[in-house]
Amino acid sequence: MITNEQIEQFIAQAHRVGDAGLTICSSGNISWRIGDEVLLSGTGSWVPSLPKEKVAVCRLSTGEVLNGVKPSMESGFHLGVLRERSDVNVVLHFQSHYATAVACMKNRPTNFNVTAEVPCHVGSEIPVVPYFRPGSKELAQGVIDALKDHNSVLLLKHGQVVCGKDFDQAFERAMFFEMACRIIIQSGGDYTVLTPEEIDDLETYILGKKTK
């Protein structure tokens, strides 16, 4: 049973995402698994100022709406990722300034490991999903497939999706994803990345467990 306190917490986290500049106006969406149910930002809602009446409650197994609020058009990949990943409770689709610029670049980078935070938190390899219409089944399946064994994905000509065990982990991944893209763009393409050996050495920094 979803409580008012949980809805308020979800709204606060949505506003946090907006305050950080990860979403603007109606861009992006966010979800949170609570037991067998999922809170989702509603269709057409503005994540930075998400109100209670725009929070959808869905059954995870079927996607059935339980409170009469239509969920985001991207609910297909939110629910799909949560079904595939028992270790994940939060999914965040965002469109931050620099990462979205990279998603729209003709000659985009293929290696984002400009600082240690990227392989440690975002992922040493970031899969890319080709452009599909927002809200389409093809886009949903592309994101679900990419996040089966990764925690972050770049959507061409669209944005990004990250997932995490909780709000903090998903937020951290999104922020470091954006930081890496800012470094790449502001360097004018004249940047270096960590070597495979340097990435392997980071295992000790993250307690011997490599980030996917």
Rank of each mutant, 00 (worst) to 15 (best):
M1Y: 06
T3F: 02
E5C: 03
Q6G: 08
Q6S: 05
I7D: 01
Q9V: 02
F10K: 01
F10W: 09
I11C: 00
A12S: 07
A12T: 05
A12L: 01
Q13H: 08
Q13D: 13
Q13N: 15
D19C: 05
D19A: 14
G21K: 02
G21D: 01
L22A: 09
I24Y: 09
C25L: 14
C25W: 13
S26F: 04
G28N: 02
N29G: 04
S31H: 05
S31F: 07
W32M: 10
I34P: 10
D36E: 15
D36F: 11
D36Y: 09
E37A: 03
V38F: 01
L39A: 08
G42F: 07
G42D: 03
T43Y: 04
P51D: 09
P51F: 03
P51V: 10
K52L: 10
K52D: 09
K54L: 10
V55F: 04
R59D: 15
S61D: 15
L66C: 14
N67M: 08
G68N: 07
V69F: 11
K70Q: 13
P71E: 05
S75H: 14
G76V: 11
G76Q: 15
G76A: 15
G76T: 15
F77T: 04
L79D: 12
G80A: 02
V81Q: 04
R85H: 11
S86I: 10
S86L: 12
N89T: 03
V91P: 03
H93F: 05
H93W: 05
H93M: 03
H93I: 00
H93V: 08
Q95P: 01
S96D: 03
H97R: 12
Y98S: 06
V102T: 01
A103I: 06
K106T: 13
N107G: 08
T115G: 09
A116T: 13
V118S: 00
P119I: 01
C120D: 12
H121V: 15
G123K: 01
S124E: 15
S124V: 06
E125I: 11
E125T: 14
E125G: 09
I126Y: 05
P127L: 04
V128Y: 06
V129R: 01
F132W: 11
P134W: 10
G135S: 09
S136E: 08
K137V: 12
K137P: 11
E138C: 10
Q141R: 11
V143P: 01
D145R: 03
A146C: 04
L147V: 04
L147H: 00
L147K: 00
N151H: 13
S152Q: 07
V153E: 07
L155D: 05
L155V: 00
L156E: 14
L156G: 12
H158F: 07
G159F: 06
Q160I: 13
V161R: 06
G164D: 00
D166R: 02
D168W: 04
E172W: 05
E172T: 11
R173S: 11
M175H: 03
E178F: 07
A180Q: 08
I183Q: 08
I183C: 13
I184R: 11
I185C: 08
Q186E: 15
G189W: 08
T192I: 06
V193C: 13
P196N: 06
E197M: 12
E197D: 14
E197Y: 09
E198N: 04
E198W: 01
I199H: 09
D201P: 13
D201I: 10
L202K: 03
Y205N: 14
I206Y: 12
I206W: 11
K210V: 10
K210M: 13
T211M: 12
